[in-house]
Design a protein around this nucleic acid. Structure first.
Lengths: 155, 155
DNA sequence: TCCAGTGGTTGCATAATGAAACTATGTTGC
DNA sequence: GCAACATAGTTTCATTATGCAACCACTGGA
């Protein structure tokens, strides 16, 4: 192996995101964190994962600015892990993963939950990609373009 | 290790999707496949990954119904890997990953490409999650509900 | 002060990853 | 038709990552 490939310097934004969250556990930790889980032991028991792995993942996500540590909200001297805005920004990715399973899973009957609009209790719509002018876009309607050299910051 | 944890029987659709594509390489392979890459060697040279790993990933994604093999379109006796509808359905996940990097990456200047609307050449809008009635939803506006026991199929 | 609970770390076994070498076909130039 | 090269893998081996279990430090409560 020599070393597991890193995508850190890669120009592709997808590779760059996988660098931070592209492992088996990170997105599940985020999922639970969005659900309100904050404490080490709570993550550990809900996810059923080894404590050393959890420890490593939490540290990595803190390093990436996805989580941050804060004093425990229950007054004890312990601390907890809370999502940063960057971490909360992962929500659409989780929704996209969920909707993909809902649409294409070979055993959809094993999926026991649905994501609903809290106000109405009704299922949410599929994520939509739209053009600036509001047209609904699917993959063939899009392309990846080289970004025009961004304006150099002064000096 | 005993065995890397599998999410196969998990009820959570996010865990289930990670079972299929939650590793370092799969989504990058899909990204290139959406771009039109079809041949083993083309994946290998574009991604710069080891051939044995690529081989294992392609096999796994074929098993998961994300890719399928087809006779080569150039008339040779080789075959190629093409996305199934299930595979093309991963597009929103890739868009979500891209947009997350674009919004939160610590070094956004290293991202050299943008996703544009092919017709206009203009950047696409952010993915939007909406309620049935069209209201824009963010994470706190949603909740996960137990699915009502789905109608048992006859007999 | 003792004891349980919380939040880790350490050590060890095994699985996954990666580079390089090797193999088996397919293709091409002659 | 055959040598040489390209394609698409597989195999081997070294190294890293993961997982379990045991251990440890600190906290909080009785």
């Amino acid at each position: 192996m020599v070393k597991r490939t890193s995508f850190e310097g890669d120009a592709c934004p997808i590779a760059r995101s996988l660098e931070a969250i592209g492992d088996w556990w990170s997105l599940l930790i985020i999922r639970d964190a969005l659900f309100g889980v904050r404490r080490f032991g709570e993550f550990q028991s809900k996810l059923g994962m080894a404590k050393n792995i959890l420890s490593a993942r939490l540290r990595s996500m803190v390093d990436h600015g996805i989580l941050e540590t804060a004093p425990a909200s229950d007054g004890t001297a312990y601390h907890e892990y809370v999502l940063t805005p960057k971490g909360r920004g992962l929500f659409p990715i989780l929704v996209a993963l969920r909707q993909w399973s809902e649409e294409f899973d070979d055993h959809p009957e094993q999926i026991t939950t649905i994501l609903v609009d809290r106000a109405k209790g009704r299922p949410v719509k599929k994520l939509e990609l739209r053009a600036e002018d509001g047209r609904l876009l699917s993959q063939p309607d899009t392309m990846v373009k080289l970004r025009p050299a961004s304006r150099r910051r002064s000096a």
